[in-house]
Design a protein around this nucleic acid. Structure first.
Lengths: 167, 167
DNA sequence: GCGGAATAGATGAGTCTTCAACTACGCTCG
DNA sequence: CGAGCGTAGTTGAAGACTCATCTATTCCGC
């Protein structure tokens, strides 16, 4: 009777036939996953932002840069690692540049390319933020789960990643 | 050597002592979860938006309204169900009002309150969108998982929800 | 029933994301 | 070489989210 995600099969008015609606169990699994994912991402982002002034999106950029030789990376590679669009990354790097945490540098191998380079200030900001972030992840994720659940989480994530592609 | 999420213990320059960094297994579990969650949410939102013009955030509002008696709900209750801030919901409902899918109505019991009411056009839009969304969820989630993984997903979600609270 | 605190919601400025151009460079092939 | 095409990245406008602030109403205690 409701136009739910799970509009019951034969729900009056649901014109589209051939849709395999979610059964009650799938519905509950999906809802639980969705809500917990949204709440967890939101919580981690908020705690990090309020404690350090660095959003999770920016944090990921800094982390990715810090992990490379020379603390620099091509813009598009950085975008891929951060699951970000090129445009978004470009805007974000501009903001990080204003903070003095990253600078741009023309790529030697390819005149079209730009390298994003993590500055010392940027590295310092990351070092200050990392403990806060790890503490949040522990508190809200690992401390809540048994080792079996952690294993299941990893398995689930890797399974979905194979489909959604690192691409 | 890198200022990773998992700055190794004793990493030179990582001044903050007392942080329990993530070990390699935790790191992989966390990364797999994070990436898969981001990719999945992004994919579902994109497919829904491109096929129907309704973002996942708007879709959730419409679904919540459609599930109630009279297809109406107090703004704050709606915000809670959609894991949305009040401000965000208020802005979103304004947009949905412009589309003619929702209207506002003063709450009879409480002069401060507003009821968001799903219109017939809104319900029709939801009915058109629901099959698209369910198909995406099937394709990118349930079709990728064994029954055991679905059960694990539900368990994980519910465990985290107990901590993150429906509150 | 009145004054103050609390609640419901709206609003505007600032920030972030998206999308569709747009610039600039490299690559290929005639 | 140089025309055309593909790739790298930037930009600006429009939509969406956050935060602080503001108004209106209710609730509470006297």
């Amino acid at each position: 009777m409701t136009a739910d995600v799970s509009l019951a099969p034969g729900d009056p008015g649901s014109g589209a036939e051939g849709t395999r609606w979610l059964d009650a169990g799938e519905q509950q699994a999906w809802r639980a996953w969705l809500y917990s994912a949204q709440l967890l991402l939101d919580r981690l982002d908020r705690e990090l932002t309020h404690a350090t002034g660095i959003s999770h999106a920016y944090y990921e950029i800094l982390v990715a840069l810090s992990e490379t030789e020379g603390r620099m990376m091509r813009m598009s590679e950085l975008a891929d690692r951060c699951l970000s669009s090129r445009s978004r990354l470009s805007h974000a790097v501009s903001r990080l540049e204003e903070r003095g945490w990253v600078r741009r540098q023309v790529c030697p191998d390819d005149g079209r390319g730009q390298l994003a380079v993590l500055t010392d200030d940027g590295f310092a900001a990351l070092e200050a933020a990392a403990p806060v972030h790890v503490a949040s992840v522990r508190t809200h994720l690992f401390d809540q789960l048994s080792p079996e659940q952690v294993a299941a989480m990893r398995d689930l994530g890797e399974t979905l990643l194979r489909h959604l592609g690192p691409r």
